[in-house]
């Protein structure tokens, strides 16, 4: 049996019947529907911010707001890549370790080989993209599920980063490099830039549109002539590229590189994507939601910290919110 949609506006209407005769108004409906989805998450963000605003006097500060954005931005860039992978029905647990490898590679390029900044950045981006491609290629060639392949990547890339970094002092980078990640403004600009580019990619391009089709129903997409394997590899490359971008910003911000960085970032990224409202089951979502999802997470972290709540409790709060977000996604799917 095919799905019998339970949409109340079109109950069992025949092929030659229409729910709304006016086409221009329906375009608005579709757009309104889109906005409604993002508004819900945005409203949640504002609400959470307001709660802390009321509860905690030191929270009522523009610097606090900026630091939320600052903390969110680097992880949000990484999460933009994760968004693409999750919409396509994939999963990437290795981006935190790709982050570590790229950080170390860029550190070596700058501190040891004293390469120009642009060269180090390009090498870093290339390494991240290649590791992402490797994730995708292994999956489509072997047929091993994404969870396992990228779980392998999670530990293997981490080991790789440790080997590269051992016995090296990766710090004290040129000033022109430090500009990238220091302060709030630059990371924020790069975050919005990355979100804009990925957003345009997802909504305007053929490969981007195929993420939704593949994540929605891979078999239909395949039978329709969509090149699944090739597309998937590209999506993991974007995941790797975004992890690399985030890593470069963090190395610049901290002014040192070490393989322990990036730990659990893949989970923060997935959490932000899911809290934002992108479906964990593929086929739906967007980067705007992910940015808001990351801001929600950081607002809770910062807000709880201001209220004197320890990081352990913060973790519990975030965990509960992740489960709530997925519950919302699941119950929405069930109601269809």
């Amino acid at each position: 049996m095919t799905n019998t949609p339970k949409n109340s506006s079109t109950p069992n209407s025949s092929p030659t019947m229409t729910s709304t005769p006016n086409s221009s108004s329906t375009n608005w409906d579709a757009m309104k529907h889109q906005f409604m989805q993002i508004w819900q998450v945005l409203a949640a963000l504002v609400l959470i911010y307001m709660v802390f605003f009321i509860l905690s006097p030191p929270f009522r500060n523009i610097d606090t707001l900026l630091s939320i954005f600052g903390q969110a931005s680097i992880l949000a860039i990484l999460a933009c890549g994760t968004t693409v992978v999750l919409i396509s029905g994939g999963l990437d647990l290795s981006v935190g370790s790709i982050f570590a490898v790229v950080g170390v590679v860029v550190g070596i390029a700058l501190a040891e080989y004293e390469l120009p900044v642009y060269a180090a950045v390009l090498i870093g981006l290339a390494v991240g993209t290649l590791l992402g491609a490797f994730n995708g290629i292994v999956q489509v060639v072997t047929g091993v599920p994404a969870f396992i392949v990228t779980l392998g990547g999670l530990t293997a890339y981490k080991g790789f980063a440790e080997i590269l970094a051992s016995g090296r002092d990766l710090s004290r980078f040129p000033d022109s490099f430090k500009v990238l990640g220091s302060g709030y403004l630059m990371p924020m600009i790069i975050m919005f830039g990355a979100a804009l580019i990925i957003g345009l990619f997802l909504t305007k391009t053929r490969l981007g549109n195929h993420t939704f089709a593949i994540g929605g129903n891979e078999e239909v997409a395949r039978l329709s002539g969509v090149k699944i394997a090739k597309s998937r590899i590209y999506y993991y490359m974007i995941g790797g590229l975004m992890a690399a971008t985030a890593a470069i910003l963090e190395v610049s911000k901290l002014n040192f590189a070490m393989p322990a960085r990036g730990q659990s970032y893949e989970l923060f990224a997935i959490a932000a994507v899911v809290i934002g409202g992108t479906s964990l089951f593929g086929g739906r979502g967007g980067v705007g939601k992910t940015i808001i999802g990351m801001l929600i997470m950081q607002t809770i972290n910062v807000g709880l910290a201001y209220m004197g709540v320890g990081t352990s409790v913060q973790r519990i709060a975030i965990g509960a919110i992740i489960i709530l977000a997925v519950y919302w996604d699941v119950s929405r799917r069930r109601s269809r």
Partner: peptide, 22 residues
């Protein structure tokens, strides 16, 4: 083909079985 579906921007799941088959 005389298929009267105006809301072509809408997700396919919003439509009835007959409309989808059309």
């Amino acid at each position: 083909l005389d298929i009267r579906i105006a809301d072509i921007y809408r997700d396919a799941q919003a439509f009835s079985g007959g409309q989808r088959q059309a």
